[in-house]
């Protein structure tokens, strides 16, 4: 009886492990299918339509009807909004991360943490709607911009949207430091701020780099929030208050009207492939930074 039960639980054990392993394998399969299918579909611009990679990446001439899918404008737009977001949101996020890890009293933490979780939960379109109803009119009335749409509006919305990522990861970076580091510095007579800037910040630098890289990944892939406020004009970013477009916003704007198999559709898939490759490079960068630390 006992032997029978033991044999049965051994069988259950084996079946469970097979199931679990299959689930893990499914994750690999999903990523491989995504990469493979998008690589196939995204390179048709070059294989079927015979556009050169150089023209796609570096030509600003986006006239698909005439056979020119130059996407330099959208690449520049994506880079511009991302740089804006990480320059504004990055330092603020790290500062709040420091605050949470080193300064905040328990009551403030209890207020900030749920607030940050709500910020993560607010849908992208709601950020876009806020930008549209609040930020764009504000920019329109206070600057020379005739519409209010453009790089600044998109950049500000993105800066806010990447905050939760940067804050949470930089807080983790500070919390994972050995307490002896801080105690040693304080015991030697350094103030808290000296300890933070000269001891903790340098020691946490790889963790902070990861926080910024993942903030960049979040920013460059964001779509609808910025599509609603960037202006969607196929032109290079001409100053903060002129409308422009990014890779993601171009995909959303033109995909509904693209016929299957057209150069327009192919070039939009090429942009998606480019975004996917950027995301993967950023993940490799994160792994590189973390490996160097250990």
């Amino acid at each position: 009886m006992i032997a029978l039960q033991a044999r049965r639980s051994h069988r259950v054990e084996r079946i469970a492990l097979v199931g679990l392993r299959f689930a893990a394998f499914f994750v690999i399969l999903a990523m491989a299918a995504l990469l493979g299918y998008l690589a196939y579909e995204g390179t048709k611009t070059f294989s079927a339509d015979h556009v050169s990679l150089g023209e796609f990446l570096f030509s600003p001439n986006f006239a698909v009807d005439a056979g020119h899918p130059g996407s330099a404008v959208f690449i520049a737009g994506s880079l511009a909004v991302t740089v804006f977001a990480i320059t504004v949101g990055g330092p603020i996020g790290i500062a709040v991360g420091i605050f949470l890890a080193e300064i905040a009293p328990a009551r403030m933490t209890q207020l900030l943490k749920p607030a940050i979780e709500v910020m993560v939960g607010i849908p992208s379109v709601v950020y876009g709607w806020l930008g549209l109803t609040l930020l764009v009119p504000l920019i329109r009335t206070h600057t020379s911009s005739p519409t209010g749409f453009g790089l600044a509006a998109a950049g500000i919305v993105l800066s806010i949207m990447i905050l939760p990522t940067v804050i949470t990861l930089s807080e983790d970076a500070f919390r994972s430091l050995p307490p002896a580091l801080k105690e040693g510095s304080l015991a030697l007579g350094a103030t808290r701020w000296q300890t933070i800037t000269r001891v903790l910040l340098p020691s946490a630098s790889s963790g902070l780099a990861v926080a910024l890289i993942l903030g960049i990944a979040r920013a460059i892939g964001e779509t609808l929030a910025i599509q609603m406020v960037i202006g969607n004009a196929t032109q290079f970013p001409q100053g903060l208050f002129a409308p422009t477009a990014a890779l993601t916003t171009e995909i959303v704007t033109d995909m509904p009207g693209a016929t299957q198999g057209s150069l327009l559709e192919h070039s939009l898939f090429s942009m998606a492939l480019l975004l996917l490759l950027i995301a993967m490079v950023l993940i490799l960068l994160v792994r590189f930074v973390l490996r160097r630390r250990t």
Partner: peptide, 30 residues
């Protein structure tokens, strides 16, 4: 194996949702 699973999960986590949407379009719609 664990390394590949983890790398796939991390990559999947950073895939922009619009890119996932186009993948869904390719697979489920087309």
């Amino acid at each position: 194996f664990r390394n590949i699973v983890q790398f796939s999960a991390e990559s999947l986590a950073t895939v922009p949702s619009i890119v996932m949407g186009l993948f869904g379009l390719l697979v489920f719609v087309y």
